[in-house]
Design a protein around this nucleic acid. Sequence first.
DNA 1: TAAGGTTACGGCGATCGTAACGATC
DNA 2: GATCGTTACGATCGCCGTAACCTTA
Lengths: 299, 299
Amino acid sequence: MNLSQIELLRVLQETNLNLSKAAEKMHIVQSAVSRQLQLFEAELGSPLFERQGKKLVGMTALGLRIMEEVTAINRAKNNIQNIAADFLDSNQGILHIATTHTQAKYFLPTPIQRFREKYPGVKIYMVQSSPDQLIDQLHARKADIAICTEKVDQESDLVLKTCYEWHHALVVPTLHPLSEGEITLARLASYPVLTYSFGFTGRSTIESAFKDTGLSLDITLAAADTDIIKTYVRLGMGVGLITAMAYDPLTDQDLVLRDLSHLIPSSKTKIAYLKHNYLPLYSQHFIAELLLAAKEIKC
Amino acid sequence: MNLSQIELLRVLQETNLNLSKAAEKMHIVQSAVSRQLQLFEAELGSPLFERQGKKLVGMTALGLRIMEEVTAINRAKNNIQNIAADFLDSNQGILHIATTHTQAKYFLPTPIQRFREKYPGVKIYMVQSSPDQLIDQLHARKADIAICTEKVDQESDLVLKTCYEWHHALVVPTLHPLSEGEITLARLASYPVLTYSFGFTGRSTIESAFKDTGLSLDITLAAADTDIIKTYVRLGMGVGLITAMAYDPLTDQDLVLRDLSHLIPSSKTKIAYLKHNYLPLYSQHFIAELLLAAKEIKC
DNA sequence: TAAGGTTACGGCGATCGTAACGATC
DNA sequence: GATCGTTACGATCGCCGTAACCTTA
């Protein structure tokens, strides 16, 4: 048994058990991969993969169980490298942040800017993805930290930190009827609504607020990010339901923002990262910076 | 980085950072070990060990932190091998049981005998050691399962299962004054006492029972196992405080057993094993057998 | 001077790459 | 015939062992 065999198993999972693709990922020829797998299976005495002919089509019970240990080894191996790199120079490295458009545009600028001042040597990569895939990005090691708005399953191998609480708000063009007077869910529901796609930025919270009162929402347009929603609100296509912090007093002067915190329950934005994963010092500092910026938002 | 380098770090810990001894344990020459360590440190970019001249005298902060990951890797590596071996033939293997004389002699015979009938192919090694070292045997991988009587720290990486509850009893020669009448701590304390060495078989419980009442114990002889205590009781050296189950109605007819459960709090015998350690099926069965035998004792 | 560690060098074996072959869709 | 995996064989590179050397108790 050696580490490249362990690595191979991991890569095989990522490539749908395709030996050729695994070989490519590992920068060696396919025959080498084939042999290493055979050797490993021979060493253990039982096959790890189900085969149809020569093709790998699944894992055996043994394979599945061993995969858990393989994951642990790979994790620890990566940790060793990261710890050592961090020790060498904790001011240099790469920070992969998985997040959504809304967070990237309206929440992250401040903390990221502050972070850059302290750690100019750290490269920041934004891994933008839909909310339901944010956690997957962590598991796939494509991201170190995820910033999530929608509910996250309390997975055991995940560390979750509540970042800040926020609520939805209404944006309408000035002079729109809803720019004045008391707002109720019923009144809202009488207009075509523009808001986030399902699964994005608290959309499910909006959904359930209306469902609870028996009202049906007429969602004319659903988009993944606030800018698109605002654009179509300006075109008069309907009223916008967006997160309050996405309203920019300067550039959005032609829109009226109306508080909806009494109608729609608040949502929580959370920071997530893998429990057994080593985070470099700068990543830990970045998380602190996020929490700091989050506190300021509340004021 | 490769697995033998990881293994080397583990072995180095076990040999007090002695390269020569580590080489011996790994069945390679010392120079090879020296080189592998250098290569590994070079790869990480920082030393893992503190050196005085050429000698290794301690670990650096980095080394200590990396050791945690090394431990995880070695554990997972062993698990892989054990899982595979178990899958090949779950009726064969080796079971290392760390325990004390008392348990080995008075509790284990029945469950072990039953276990052997079901798993004749499993070799059983008894790792006898003093109670305070039982857990160390687990960590050192000298034992798979430990059976402890004295208190065990609730370590996070340990699985503890309560096996059975037991209490101390008094043994005296027939015709001894204490063979009749009510027994109190005060009355007991007026005789020279023979019991277990400190740290053995609930000795601390005895200790505290007397201390709580302000009485001082006159312990004439302390031994690690019951047989020795009984021997000296027969010689009239004093009264024996032993675990009740160590009294054998057949061979101990010349001794009188007197219950002390109202005077000395009961103790618990526990089964312990490492949390992240794979236990073969037969080991799991053995634990079940222990718990079964434990239940019968209570009757 | 014994014990512990490093450095130099030659040899062997593990593992890779090339290439030809087999199977399955 | 395109994709995927296996087998054979030569080449290479990593790692070990021998041995000489260095340092410190």
